[in-house]
Write a protein that binds this DNA or RNA. Sequence first.
RNA 1: CGGGGCGUAGCUCAGUAUGGUUAGAGUACUUGGUUUGGGACCAAGGGGCCGGAGGUUCGAGUCCUCUCGCCCCGACCA
Length: 567
Amino acid sequence: MRFSRAYIPTTKESPKDALLPSHIYLSRAGFVAQVASGLYNFLPLGKRVLRKIENIINEEMAACGALEVDLSFVTPAELWQESGRIEKFGKELLRFRDRKDNLFVLGPTHEEMMVSIVRNRVTSYKQLPLNVYQVKTKFRDEARPRFGLMRAREFVMKDGYSFHASTEDLDREFDVMEAAYKQILERLGLTFRIVEADSGAIGGTGSKELMVLAQSGEDTLAVCDTCEYGANVEAARRAPRTIIPEAPQADFMRFKTPNVKSIDDLSAFFHVDPYYTLKAVVMRAVYTEGSEPVCFFIRGCDELQEVKARNSVGAIDLVDISEAELSEIGLVPGFIGPLDQDKIRFVMDNDTRNATSMICGANEADYHFVGVNLSVMNEAVFADLAAVAEGDGCPHCGGKFLHTKGIEVGHIFKLGTTYSAPLKAEFLDENGRSQPFIMGTYGMGVSRLVAAVIEQHHDEKGCIWTHATAPYMVNVMVSNIKEEAHLAYAESLYTELQSRGIETILDDRKERFGFKMSDAELIGFPFTVIVGKEMENGLVQIMIRKTCEIITVNADDVETKLEELIG
RNA sequence: CGGGGCGUAGCUCAGUAUGGUUAGAGUACUUGGUUUGGGACCAAGGGGCCGGAGGUUCGAGUCCUCUCGCCCCGACCA
């Protein structure tokens, strides 16, 4: 491609609403342009990057026998009614009616459609397993799109679905997909972590997220500093504590603690580590029908992890509750405890089971119990409620957890029969018995990956594309096109590189050196060959974008040198 | 959906508290000239429904009401 004939609208200034590096540079360098909230046009360079990622995905999917399909973007609403998701998805589903007044939705994901294409067609266990996928535009009418391509309403996603006759076979395929996803991200040149994730209301036994590590990531991960284990904090587990503070000595008794309400106050008042205090967090749990206040008890040194708390009571949401509401129930804020507690449903953190020497609220203003042995609560409901903190121990190796930020670019999980059962997608097993398909689902955010590459690979000058994602590998830049000999050399180099299968762009614009260099750095081609002053000595230079290092090479050896650099 | 902010040239923004000639700058664009290794310089140009509708006023980019759009924080995001 000749730069002079390309459409690459670069700008010196960022769009006023761009905050993230990926958003700023992808806009400034002319890869994408915003159309409306959460909607983006892909310009020629952006489209090339998108296609490269798609190609890698397609190659890796083909390598493990997955079959590419392409399902209708517009899907009949009936399918969504059948699965029960039309309500659940709510306003994120963009609905509309056709001329005959039939209701349709724009596909935000394709479980229903995918089940419907195999339903009644795959009818025997002999046809299983089956793994089908597509790379497709999706639409989710997000309440708040943001961060450019990172959270758009219209986006490109690879979504795959596998169908099995047994859970063992699903487990096998799940591992195959995990390996394939890992391979894709490695080929793209990304640093990432595969972490355990919350499987949410969908349930299932396995749920893993692929996280590209970047400061701007929206998810917080707890990663082990020693082994491979990592988890989204929503799902992270930790090893039992090894360092236990010295226990306070006290017999069980009711103790007057005037106006001592917070954990800080309490531990100061008794001069004990917060580990020996019991924190009560009351929230209103919202269910599909109705809601109720629920109290969660955790150690004072811990924080409540809301997703875990929500899962522990099967709620769809937890919302804050006011002190007035607490008083109405008969609870005294600051003095709530589990002993003789019958005013509210409560759940206790696993780490409080059989805890001794505890201090907890006495359910009466200005009184706490001390010397509490929580083994008396063994009949209560226990669950993992506490948020994993930095420094907590890894459950696998005894290493320490660190927190880091990640961009979720993929999510794979085992669906089981969540969709096949309600949609009555069944096959006959060896015994002639009708069974719903056992399913797995594998998603990857393709357009989000474009942004993720830049979040992880940029500097103050612009984009730094990895070799696998670069729109062009080499930029042949003529610093002054009026120098006919320089231009002629560049033209021949441009032709030669292309014949060697290297994607090349020729910057033949009538612009000055500095202008073209800035563009080259902003756009982020891995290598820019500078054809200019050094030509008089039979030399050219290669600017390596990643380091901004400029090396001088003989004009006759540049192709070989580039091939060496590309590797 | 709750809270906040912003809509003026392709882009980034002044101008709006206190209404008053023909609405500005930088950048980008066109033409001519000079330049040519880090976003050059000189000169001459084109480009605006001041987001939209209604109102107040002799007069509205500026004041009032309504509306649409975009952004930020939160909620939400199987």
